[in-house]
Design a binder for these strands. Structure first.
Lengths: 246, 246
DNA sequence: TCCATGCTTTGATGCAGATCAAGCCGCGCT
DNA sequence: AGCGCGGCTTGATCTGCATCAAAGCATGGA
């Protein structure tokens, strides 16, 4: 299945070495996609699409981080999706965006016009199949996230988020699997709060607490070292290790 | 699209007048499905599938209510899906159930063995397409739900749930669209608490408060009358009316 | 260099919702 | 009737997180 993933991959004949959609595509399919492919850049904080707007493209994240957020009239916001490089954004068959898409960091996306993308999808069973699998993955993630939002304590929420980021990082880089797990937090405290359904003060306090208790080591505000991943996963209150441990 | 919905529909040649999967199926597809179709009944409280178990069927709810729930080691549980009649359960392409499926009331499901279902799906683009659309619908619902869990107050949560149930009911029955909206709560206070990430005491108190404030009228513990749906939707803190109002 | 700005930390206080505890209501059973 | 039980309500109290407030720390620009 890996070869069917809608991914960002090195692509020699592409300005930013990015090939998207389907590594196993037949040549003509790929070329039809290339015709309708284009890149867009955003600065941190910019909104890519507003909830309710027409969204006439699908895309995948090349570099940077985007988030999907829901906002209430009075300004309360909840992040409902976190998109790292190679993640897919878009709603085949849907005209209207159901939530805001926001560039959390500087962001480059690889976009495809939706109409032609959908046509290719309809004619290419394994792309449709792959899209279904990705959507199911997102649904699984959303449901884990619901457990976090509904039932976990602030400390468990923070530990869970750190674990999730560590895991997502590990799946992108060649994972060493030995010793400390090290990564940079790609989110501000405020973005973490929006992810977790907390305030930024609580996020800050709980990170300090985890540091004080030796669960994590911080260098600066963003660089995290996890001496023992099992302890962190235990703090997350989550039996599943997400495949992180053997 | 409606004619492609995976639905429970009246079906004269079926013991419980239920035809599932695809109203526009070609005859032979439908018959292939009929061959692998069977019914299962459960009593309220029974678990249909355990998280982590192999799940070798997909199904749709015929009568009753099922819920998908996540549970932590210490017993905290969060509902992550609520399945009313005609809703689909199952994960095409997945071996293992990602969460418990529980019969919240007495329940009848119409099941299909997964393998043949998947084969038919692969060979039938519009079934695959329909499945993708349904999964996207579930994802949208999950993300609304995340906003509820992460950012809404107890009162808003209750109002939102009542609105959701009212809407789902309206879409099943011929919706009068005039005057009071009336329905029966299909969930215990405890199930509502699991849905909303609250305790059952808080659910009870907030329902009492909405009653006291005239937002709803209760006859008994389950029968709800909503004198003015706009007030309820306003209490839910949700700008979207879910298509309930013109 | 100094200040402005955005991000973060930390402290003091308040409150929404959890927890603990009792009792009520309706129903089925004997 | 009388009883037990599951579901529900209501009260008293506790507490985890929000809120309000202030100050620390980097970075970049004048």
């Amino acid at each position: 299945m890996q070869d069917l993933k809608l991914v960002s991959q090195d692509c020699a004949d592409c300005p930013i070495r990015h090939r998207a959609v389907c590594a196993r595509c037949e040549t003509d399919e790929l070329e039809r996609l290339e015709e309708v492919k284009y890149y867009r850049s955003f600065e941190a904080g910019q909104t890519v699409v507003w909830q309710g707007d027409k969204m006439d493209f699908v895309a995948s994240v090349v570099t940077g981080i985007a988030s999907l957020t829901q906002t209430m009239e009075d300004g309360r916001t909840q992040m409902v999706g976190l998109l790292l490089p190679s993640d897919f954004v878009g709603r085949p068959g849907r005209e209207i965006a159901a939530y805001d898409v926001v560039a959390t960091t500087d962001l480059v996306m690889c976009c495809f016009r939706k109409k032609p993308f959908e046509q290719i999808m309809m004619q290419t069973p394994h792309i449709a199949e792959r899209l279904l699998q990705m959507t199911l993955d997102e649904l699984d993630a959303a449901r884990e996230w619901m457990l976090l939002l509904g039932r976990k304590t602030a400390r468990e929420k923070i530990a869970s988020l750190l674990a999730i980021i560590a895991q997502r990082n590990a799946s992108l880089t060649a994972h060493p699997k030995v010793g400390d797990v090290i990564f940079d937090l790609p989110l501000t405290r405020e973005a973490m709060a929006d992810y977790l359904g907390l305030t930024l003060e609580t996020v800050s306090r709980q990170i300090s607490a985890l540091k004080r208790d030796g669960v994590i080591v911080l260098q600066g505000k963003r660089h995290v070292t996890v001496p023992d991943m099992r302890i962190l996963l235990d703090e997350a209150g989550d039996d599943s290790d997400g495949g992180m441990l053997a």
